[in-house]
């Protein structure tokens, strides 16, 4: 019921098309060029990881893709709709109906229960005047929290909180799911769970873009876009990305060395 049915997304248009995107911040007298001409296209159904060192502009790009910030120059088309000239009110509507956002720090309302948190986007939408509760329940079940609906965030573990956030992001059937370091505050086991959830959603046809600095997490995506100094430095399928390949090799050799050490140490 959720995810698969993304109506009105422009039939042939890519989910995301960014051309010549620039963002200049004024910090005192200094002008910081956070994005310096980014061209990027993400098709419907893709699972893309955006990587880069801190200061590379990946968070800035994420905010642009989420319509939370406006570019200084360039155009961003979301499902074929140009967003550059939209008013704050229109952008809010776009965020509400077409974008699902997941944050590193979850950003749940502390005094609201899981289901109330998930219902939040529907408060601001005309689409689901009735049945909002039902949709929220379905979303929570989908992320495996069917038995935790009335719990408050402080009664949930970190992984469960992020699941609530995922359910909230999904509840309005967004065209794209954006996750900004979604596993940054989670331990490795929970990271695996959450990223597994993303993979499931992707398999259901959901377009997903995540920002991460963990190669392990990026490895689940089909494609890795690397930024450096506000520019796209590399953009290729995960399997062809040399940095990722190198990472996998180093993991493999570390594992092999450890296995060797154990094999030698065992008889003694």
């Amino acid at each position: 019921m959720l995810g698969r049915r993304r109506a009105n997304a422009g039939a042939d248009a890519p989910a995301i098309r960014v051309t010549g995107l620039e963002k200049v911040y004024k910090m005192g007298v200094e002008r910081v060029r956070a994005l310096d001409g980014v061209d990027l296209q993400i098709n419907t159904g893709e699972f893309v990881a955006i990587m880069g060192a801190s200061g590379s502009g990946k968070s800035t790009l994420m905010n642009m893709l989420g319509c939370l910030d406006r570019p200084s120059a360039g155009e961003y088309e979301l499902a074929g709709i140009p967003t550059r000239k939209m008013s704050a009110t229109r952008l809010a509507k776009v965020r509400n109906e077409r974008i699902g956002f997941i944050f590193q720090t979850f950003e749940l309302l502390p005094r609201a229960s899981a289901i109330q948190n998930v219902m939040l986007p529907m408060i601001y939408s005309k689409k689901h005047l009735f049945g909002a509760r039902g949709r929220a329940k379905a979303a929570l079940r989908k992320v495996g929290l069917g038995d935790r609906m009335r719990h408050r965030p402080n009664q949930l573990s970190g992984g469960q909180r992020q699941r609530v956030a995922v359910a909230r992001a999904l509840v309005n059937d967004p065209a794209i799911l954006l996750a900004d370091e979604p596993t940054g505050n989670l331990d490795s086991q929970t990271t695996t769970e959450i990223i597994g959830l993303f993979t499931d959603l992707h398999n259901d046809g959901q377009t997903i873009v995540i920002v991460t600095h963990e190669e392990e997490v990026a490895g689940y995506a089909e494609r890795i876009v690397r930024l450096r100094d506000g520019k796209v430095f590399s953009d290729m399928p995960t399997s062809e990305d040399p940095l990722h390949t190198a990472y996998l090799q180093s993991i493999a050799s570390t594992a092999a060395r450890r296995a060797n050490a154990e094999a030698q140490g065992a008889p003694a």
Binding site: L68, E107, R168, N172
Partner: peptide, 16 residues
């Protein structure tokens, strides 16, 4: 402030 930011991120218009 963070709550307001979140509400805006999930689509609350300024007027709301």
């Amino acid at each position: 402030t963070r709550e307001i930011g979140l509400r805006k991120a999930v689509g609350a218009r300024p007027l709301v």
